[in-house]
């Protein structure tokens, strides 16, 4: 494998970090800096914010993230198969169909159980 390709990505990574950091730094240097208690207060509705910011969130966020991770794994299995697909036989098609269908059925079960509702 040509590591030069990845050297490009590595340098790109550094530049991609520097490019947005420079304007922010410049803005911080060039702009005025006059903080006062009112200005640096949490921006809400005009009244001082009440309680902790890190309130407990809906469990639904977690469930969707969970479903996403499972499907992410599935898609990553699919990619090598998709690349090789042209030269594979019918068996490969059947094997992958079973794989995808199982997860599709899974999705429908979750749907029926109401796990996909945002309530």
């Amino acid at each position: 494998m040509n590591l030069n390709e990845w050297a490009f990505v590595g340098i790109f990574l550094a530049i991609a970090g520097i490019l947005p950091a420079v304007p922010i730094l410049l803005g911080w240097l060039l702009g005025p800096r006059k903080p006062n208690p009112i200005k640096t207060d949490t921006y809400e509705c005009g009244i001082e914010t009440v309680g902790d910011t890190w309130v407990q969130f809906k469990v639904q966020y977690y469930i969707f993230a969970l479903v996403f991770v499972i499907f992410d794994v599935e898609m990553l299995f699919l990619f090598p198969w998709a690349v090789a697909y042209q030269r594979l036989d019918l068996f490969a098609f059947v094997a992958m169909t079973i794989f995808i269908l199982l997860l599709t059925i899974d999705l429908f079960i979750l749907w029926r159980k109401g796990a996909l509702e945002w309530t």
Binding site: I70, V73, E74, F77, F79, P80, W81, A82, V83, A84, Y85, R87, L88, F91, A92, A95, M96, I98, F99, L102, L103, D106
Partner: peptide, 25 residues
């Protein structure tokens, strides 16, 4: 990558673990 894809669904190689992975997921 293509070799990996072919190996995953090859009956002589990893097709069984592959389907089991699906059930596991």
């Amino acid at each position: 990558i293509a070799q990996l894809g072919a190996a995953l669904v090859d009956p002589a190689q990893y097709v069984l673990p592959f389907e089991v992975a699906s059930v596991l997921l």
